[in-house]
Design a protein around this nucleic acid. Structure first.
Lengths: 225, 225
DNA sequence: TTCAGTGTTAAATAATTTTTAAGAATTTCT
DNA sequence: AGAAATTCTTAAAAATTATTTAACACTGAA
């Protein structure tokens, strides 16, 4: 289990780190929210332990920020503030659990395990994204609709994956350009339009129920119905 | 969110049930572990709330049993036993969270939501602005009134969003021109009037209660009543 | 090197939205 | 009440946005 601890109190951080390492976890420590953010964005952690009270970026803001960046790693908030309102603020910001200091290490460990279990035990079948009768097989890198196998190119696959992960939500061309093409400024290109067209041919053309919808002036949306 | 409560204390059970139903959850209650087991096995719940101390089958045994039956529904244990050892036993048995009585309802709600969120990959929470029976769905980029779906163009959507975010406040044409059209000087146009008219046709026309009000000489206001 | 598949651009066409403008209706002012 | 100002409604013109096609460039494998 790979864990990131974001905690500005060195003593507590090293105590927790040691404990976790004894349980054969891989542990990284960030001593402020700023660094924590960078590390969380660039490494695939199983769980993140977050102190609320920190310089630069506090815990609440950090979770919110991570969530807005689509980082869904489970987060456990660690804090001395035990009021229900504080807890609610934590959950509101996007945390998955909330533990009040002082705590016993064993409880922290148990809670981390619980968070991890839920995220990882989705098993091998977690690698298939579905919408209606459309499946995206992340292992085979292939789509299926109504059981029929559909081969996709890399860009097509990337685009469809992005659409599927944002099913039911309108995604703008700018969003797509950034997340799928990694274009961060306006190049005046129409690649996205063209690729949506490719996808439609492969995925919607032969089926009565269309899944790819264009929302004029706003973007595209993948949705059943 | 569909929830099963397994709790032998009728008072507590009905208190929690009522609270959850107010948050528009579907709630079933089982008054002992035996029945709880049967219900959990036959219905697809989103979360299960489990009291530890119950006749026939206690909470620990019930989770263990469910897990062995491959029921992976998130379980929150509810109990008066707050020692770390008790908590560990709960997690050990397969629970996902552990809340000690007495608790505040809001915390229970937050924890249930957190458990549910992780299991249903609906991504970021539905982002919906509401006024009276009018909803503006920021994900789907669609309005709903009285449950009826209303499609809007980009400009219509922008205007309605601005009105809704300023509900109950009169916004001048100049405000609207600046924030929605990005026009910063007087062009003598009447687009805004035209668009308010468009919106009225889509949003107010078919309903007795009008939401868009014109305040002559000042601007427009969105308000119920 | 050639070839097939992939990614990108550009331009023509189609569809829809946005804006303009002008007459009708309403409200305000004298 | 009558005139003036403001707002509403409508339809058609203008502008924008989307789709499709085809051509071109790039890549990696044979």
């Amino acid at each position: 289990m790979k864990i990131l601890i974001v905690e500005d109190e060195p003593k507590l951080a090293s105590f927790v780190k040691k404990g976790l390492e004894e349980q054969s976890c891989e542990v990284d420590v960030a001593y402020d929210g700023q660094i924590g953010r960078t590390m969380a964005l660039s490494n695939p952690y199983d769980v993140i332990v977050l102190d609320v009270n920190m310089p630069k970026i506090n815990g609440f803001d950090l979770v919110e920020n991570l969530r807005s960046e689509k980082i869904t790693t489970p987060v456990l908030m660690l804090t001395a503030m035990g009021s229900v309102d504080d807890k609610l603020a934590g959950f509101e910001a996007g945390a998955d659990d909330y533990l009040v200091k002082p705590f016993e290490f064993r409880e922290l460990m148990a809670r981390l395990r619980a968070l991890h279990k839920r995220n990882s035990d989705t098993g091998p079948q977690a690698n298939i994204l579905k919408v209606a009768d459309l499946e995206l097989d992340m292992n085979e890198k292939v789509a299926r609709r109504d059981g029929r196998r559909i081969e996709l190119t890399a860009k097509e696959f990337g685009l469809l994956e992005y659409l599927i992960r944002n099913r039911g939500r309108v995604v703008s061309r700018v969003d797509i350009a950034e997340k799928v093409w990694d274009i961060h400024f306006d190049t005046g290109t129409n690649v996205i339009d063209v690729y949506v067209n490719f996808l439609r041919k492969k995925i919607d053309k032969d089926f009565p129920q269309k899944l790819i919808h264009t929302v004029i002036g706003m973007g595209y949306m993948l949705k059943e119905e």
